[in-house]
């Protein structure tokens, strides 16, 4: 056999090996998701003898049970309300900050920018005890507002970072032209910067939404009233209560992850950009 042929067959073997590894990766990534979905569609009695397979008779009974018996619908509503208002507020406030960091020079600017954007490294757990005491003192615990304030605060560093790095790429000439046209500062922000930065704004919205939708600790601590809970913290407590009815538990899990999966599949590139900005230039 010629050298070339050996190389070729080696290449084929290696190609199969690479495909094999990737298939294994796909299986491991998706297996838990598969388990959630097929289990959620099974009767409790079927699950006893058929744990892995597809449901023989798919049923939506678990979801119906969830809707009547549990507060899951309320939790879903709470999560939606809290995420939507936190995300809107956070993107607004962070885009103001990003605008200031891009457009103006003032003493201590780069220090302040570094300080604020570095805060994303700190664990919310180290802040949560004094924050909780403050919320109790000003009578805000057990209100939507308490978690919204904390979520917005915690997400400002990353959002400001994402938006500033995009704002900086907008050509100065466009801004200069709008100044000549007599735009006020707020008009430049509103009519020039924000519309031109839509990809970055969407990325920031999705990054925020993902964190807030999935968050447990802050909602667990600040919302201790059962009807105020978010879906995730409700689920965390739900887990302890229904360990015997696994299909029911999995239907709750399914309700929690399906919105994320759909949004991810639609907005994949924005998610990826949000999480990789800063590391890849």
């Amino acid at each position: 056999m010629s050298r070339k042929l050996i190389d070729q067959s080696k290449g084929v073997v290696f190609g199969v090996f690479k495909q094999g590894i990737m298939l294994l990766m796909v299986l491991t990534s998706l297996l838990p998701v598969y388990f959630i979905i097929v289990t959620a569609l099974k009767e409790k009695t079927e699950y006893v003898f058929n744990k892995w397979g597809l449901p023989a008779l798919p049923t939506l009974q678990n979801f119906l049970t969830l809707l009547e018996g549990e507060k899951i619908f309320r939790w879903l509503l709470n999560s939606t309300l809290i995420s939507v208002s936190s995300v809107i507020l956070c993107v607004m406030i962070s885009s103001f900050m990003a605008y200031a960091f891009t457009r103006y020079t003032f003493p201590g600017k780069s220090f302040l920018f570094t300080l604020i954007t570095s805060l994303l490294v700190l664990s919310p757990v180290v802040l949560v005890i004094p924050l909780f005491r403050t919320m109790v003192a000003i009578n805000l615990h057990n209100t939507y507002l308490s978690v919204i304030i904390v979520y917005v605060g915690v997400m400002i560093p990353i959002s400001t970072y994402l938006l500033t790095s995009f704002f900086r790429s907008i050509p100065q000439a466009i801004i200069d032209a709008s100044i000549v046209d007599g735009c006020t500062e707020f008009q430049i922000y509103k009519n020039i910067m924000m519309p031109l930065s839509m990809p970055a704004v969407i990325t920031t919205i999705l990054t925020n939404w993902l964190y807030i939708w999935n968050e447990i600790l802050i909602s667990l601590v600040f919302l201790q009233n059962d009807s105020l809970r978010t879906l995730m913290s409700g689920l965390a407590l739900f887990k302890g209560k229904y360990t015997t009815d696994i299909p029911l538990t999995m239907s709750g899990v399914a309700v929690a992850i399906i919105p994320t999966l759909i949004i991810y599949l639609i907005g994949q590139r924005y998610f990826v950009r949000g999480l990789t900005t800063g590391a890849v230039k």
Partner: peptide, 29 residues
């Protein structure tokens, strides 16, 4: 490699799923 775009989409799925939801699932598994 063939299918790399699909692999790329799939490999990122665990990153976006809630730890609470996946923790309960892994607890079972």
């Amino acid at each position: 490699i063939r299918g790399w775009r699909i692999y790329q989409t799939v490999i990122f799925i665990p990153v976006v799923l809630a730890i609470a939801a996946m923790g309960i699932t892994f607890g079972q598994l």
